[in-house]
Each structure stands twice: as C-alpha cells, then as structure tokens.
Design a protein around this nucleic acid. Structure first.
Length: 305
DNA sequence: GCGTCCAGGTCTACC
DNA sequence: GGTAGACCTGGACGC
C-alpha cells in the first residue's frame, strides 16, 4: 500500500538534544547536500532512498521533536518513510546515548555548559562513504578549498533534484570517473587517485564502510581499517571515528593546535603530546571533550559560519 | 595582472 | 622509527 509522505513528519528527540548545537557542531552543515542559513533553525538536505529516489527535506526543531518538511508530492511506501526517519535519526545521532559523556562533563565546571547548550552530538552525513570522501577533502587544504571540492562533487556528479538541490554522488558514479576529471573538474588535486580508489573499492570490491556504524570491532581495529584507505591518515581516521561514535582519538590538526595554544597555553606553541596529555583525563570521551573545548566560543558567542 | 611564497595532512623514500 | 620532500590548491603579498 502506498501512502503520502506527510508534509509534517515528526521525530521525537532526547531531552539533552540541542538542534542548533548539533547542526553547527562542525562544518558539515555547510557542505552540500546539507544547507544551513546563518543560525536559522532549520537544516536542508536530501535523503537517498534504496529505490534511488532522492527526497529533499527541510528539518526544523519543535519542543521535543524534529519537524520534517518535504517539497515533493510523490507517494512513499511505509518502508520508505521508515528509511527517511532512520536516516534523519542517524544524522542527528538521536539513538546514541550521551549520558556518560554528560555525567563526566558535569564533574568539570569548565565543561558544564555542554549539556546546558544541548551540545555533544556531531552532525554526520547520510552514509559513511560520504563522510569519508568529505573528510579526505578536508585534508591539507583550507576550508574554502574543501567547500569548493565538495560543491564540485555534488553539482557536477550528483543527481539534480531541483534548480539548486543536488544529491551526493553515489560510490558507483564516483568510481566511474577518471582521475583526470577529478583533478581538473572537481579540483581535488593529488587527492583524486585516493577518492577514486576508495569509490572503486566500495563499488567493485569487498569494502562496505556502512557496516562500520554497527560493528563489534574495537576502536583500534576500526582505526587501523580506516587508516588503510589511501588518503586517510591519523587526522582523517580519528575524525571519521568520531562520526562513528568512537571518541578515543583526538584528530589534532593545525587549527586545533593553534586554538589549544590560545585557550590553554597563553598563545605559546604546544606539541601534540601535551594536547594528548591534557585530554587524557576524559578517558574514552577525550576526542569529544577536545572538540567541544576548542569550539566553546562557537556555542557561547556566535557560530563561525 | 602576474609571480612568489605559504599553509595544510598524507604518502613515500631514505637513513 | 623518525624525517624530509613531494603532492596541489587558493589566498596573501609584493611588485
């Protein structure tokens, strides 16, 4: 039986969930298919159904719920509606428990703000594949170049939904590209062979990164597997791990070093050993503590987007 | 407008 | 195991 997707789909959220704090938890909300307007309480994106239908949605918060609007007037099966709901819950990390994280944060006065602001959740893409491709695009370049690469990927290879809305390209589409195209049209530079090889391994090989969101592998085993992907080094592997719900690695980059130095060392240059040592007091949550420590100003003053 | 320099994370070759 | 250099791009800067 086919039923119409309601223009208002409502998804309950946990009491410790903060919509804006999650949307602006890091830069992903500015990379398409995500689209967020400066501090406006909604997030646009495109949900890809298994039937290869792409559904544009706009998500906004209510008191204890997310409200999902869609502009499409097509009908959806119950399974498709279930899929849309599951994807949105996964993007906003609604099914992850942050109780232990908040309990630990409460013990440190400097970190009590995190729960107060409903922060703690890191926005993630629809698929692990998309998160990894985007993470490779953040390596060794400025944020503006990352935006340029992802914009090109989506607008030149993704399915067009409307005039301005595109879906993220599938592994198969990326696997069918040439290295030359990725270099010259997407402007990926030397990352082109890495992205191509990853997409081809996912499409034609045995690698299924989506399994990593539900796996019995230890964090170190998972880290090692991520590290085997060409183009994914310590920084990228650690930050993909955070999007998989594992926070034991810090994923320190140059911005983290500079910000830590300003925040906790009076501007003096610090090495990674000192940063690791400082956050080791937060145990398995240390990666998340580091991130929200360094981005505290975003939440308390003004999001930098 | 043009040329040069620099920052950024990963990989590879070398010691 | 540690280190140096190459990879590539866009932005900043000087002329």
């Amino acid at each position: 039986m086919k039923i119409k997707l309601p223009s208002l789909m409502r998804i309950p959220v946990p009491s410790d969930f903060g919509f804006l704090s999650t949307v602006y938890s890091h830069g992903w909300c500015l990379l398409p298919p995500f689209h967020a307007e400066k501090e406006q309480p909604w997030l646009d994106t495109v949900i890809d159904l298994p039937s290869e239908i792409h559904v544009p949605v706009s998500i906004s918060p209510a008191k204890t719920q997310l409200i999902v609007h869609t502009t499409t007037d097509r009908s959806f099966s119950e399974e498709e509606i279930k899929h849309i709901r599951m994807v949105i819950r996964s993007m906003f990390r609604l099914d992850e428990s942050f109780q232990d994280f908040y309990s630990l944060a409460q013990k440190f006065p400097a970190f009590r703000w995190i729960r107060r602001y409903g922060a703690g959740r890191l926005l993630r893409s629809q698929t692990v594949f998309e998160d990894i491709v985007k993470m490779i695009c953040t390596t060794n370049c400025s944020w503006s170049l990352t935006q340029s690469m992802v914009n090109n990927l989506v607008h030149k290879l993704g399915i067009q939904i409307s005039e301005s809305i595109f879906a993220f390209p599938s592994p198969a589409v990326l696997a069918g590209c040439t290295e030359k195209f990725l270099r010259e049209e997407i402007r990926c530079g030397y990352r082109a062979p890495y992205i191509l090889a990853f997409a081809q391994t996912v499409t034609y090989g045995s690698l299924d990164p989506e399994k990593w969101r539900e796996t019995d592998l230890s964090t170190e085993e998972l880290y090692d597997q991520l590290h085997t992907i060409p183009g994914v080094g310590p920084y990228a592997a650690a930050n993909v791990l955070k999007l998989l719900g594992r926070y034991e690695h810090l994923g320190i980059d140059s911005w983290c070093r500079t910000t830590f130095a300003e925040l906790r060392a009076n501007g003096r240059k610090v090495n990674d050993v000192r940063i690791e040592k400082y956050y080791s007091q937060f145990g398995k949550w240390r990666g998340l503590f580091m991130w929200f420590d360094l981005t505290r100003n975003w939440h308390q003053k003004k999001f930098p987007f």
